[in-house]
Design a protein around this nucleic acid. Structure first.
Lengths: 227, 227
DNA sequence: GCAGTATCGATAACTGTTTATCGATAAGCG
DNA sequence: CGCTTATCGATAAACAGTTATCGATACTGC
């Protein structure tokens, strides 16, 4: 009914999940000196259906020209704007273990709207150390610093049995969005945004597919001694 | 038309993704000494709609008894069987950086159908070291060892620009399933299973929601100096 | 035993995403 | 200058997943 849909809300989650991949390819195209790109070409690079790509790009509000394609810089700008990657949110990370260190060393987060400014941990032996240039502070200081610096994003990289306590702490301190890497269901007030990355859920899909495959054709892949 | 659906295939991916969470709660229930559980109760623990839970549990082929619920041990057995978590697949990990170390130290993978038996890396300074009890081997040995040991699962934890090369190596060596942590679209033969865990796709959802929230009510969360 | 209630199973409606098809547009080429 | 072709946009159909509703069952208490 209403052809105008200027509101950037209501973009499907699957589309949002594909946007970073589009961005990555768009940057590569830009480096290659290309100024325009067609849905077809973008689809080939990402092994996606061209129609799917067009549907996704439609969400940006931009229109492409037939036979030519879309403007690469405009697409980049539009997608970054939708994702909020044209500004940077400061974030605190809790849990300076293996996973926490990996996150602190992850490249390009700053170009993806996230700047992890400090890490926190309970363990005294970790406090005071530096990981990838970020200081590890005692957990007790989290609430105070969060309020003082107005940090809005918290990252949870602690074992599952501590995650809820950390989340409570963050919410109490005024954190608005939590990126949770512990495989638990966090209970937070409705207005707090939670994005949980559960390794086990992806693993479940992998092992289930593998189990089906091995059940279907046990000859393939299973190597017996007398073969 | 066909009420019988014994085939364990065709389980929706969202359901598969929820199964590990169900399992986790079921184990806790077992420790608490409970032998039966209702969909309602399970739903409350995981903040899921009871109907959703029933739909998911339906995929196991088990039936619960009204007013009583489902048998906890039978549910555990059924879900583990579907996910292939009642057996263990040996896996090789490539990339002994931060992320690789985090994966090597991750707990409970062995109870989730995955046993990472060794890590591989190209960097000579990493080769020979031990991370969480697992030896780091030179990448050159990957193909040979994979074939000799009949390893079927490969984990990619290298930077994006090396991921495709590692995937090619794995496929060539006979790997059947790849758990990919690099944010790239891997090109592999159709029969090879690929599960990509892309941090940026989750981050996209988080930052987009946050951007919308901050745009809607800038007063909340954004702290001005003169407040 | 009989009523009340919690829980399950099945069916159906709804929502949202993907896939397919059509007509329109503009660049390239004879 | 007009024809061909690649590409886009819009509409519609198909599919999948979630949510809602209803009747049936079996435990509990009286």
């Amino acid at each position: 009914m209403s052809p105008r849909n200027d509101e950037p809300r209501g973009i499907p989650a699957p589309t949002l999940r594909r946007f970073p991949a589009y961005l990555s390819q768009l940057f590569r195209l830009q480096e290659e000196g290309r100024d325009v790109v067609s849905s077809t070409h973008l689809g080939k690079r990402l092994m996606l259906d061209p129609v799917q790509v067009r549907k996704d790009l439609e969400c940006t509000g931009l229109v492409g020209r037939p036979k030519v394609g879309h403007s690469v810089p405009k697409l980049i700008e539009a997608i970054e704007s939708i994702l909020g990657w044209n500004r940077v949110n400061e974030a605190f990370l809790v849990g300076a273990g293996n996973l926490g260190a990996a996150l602190l060393g992850y490249p390009r987060f700053k170009q993806s709207g996230l700047d992890i400014v400090a890490a926190f941990d309970e363990a005294p032996e970790k406090v005071g150390s530096e990981i990838h240039g970020k200081t590890v502070l005692p957990l007790k200081k989290l609430a105070n610093l969060t309020r003082r610096m107005g940090v809005k994003v918290g990252i949870i990289a602690v074992p599952a049995d501590h995650a809820q306590a950390v989340a409570d702490l963050m919410v109490e301190a005024g954190i608005l969005a939590i990126w949770n890497f512990a495989p638990v269901t966090l209970r937070v007030p409705e207005e707090v945004i939670v994005q949980t990355e559960d390794l086990y859920s992806g693993l479940a899909i992998l092992t289930q597919k593998l189990a089906v495959r091995l059940r279907e054709e046990p000859s393939k892949g299973v190597r017996h001694a007398h073969e």
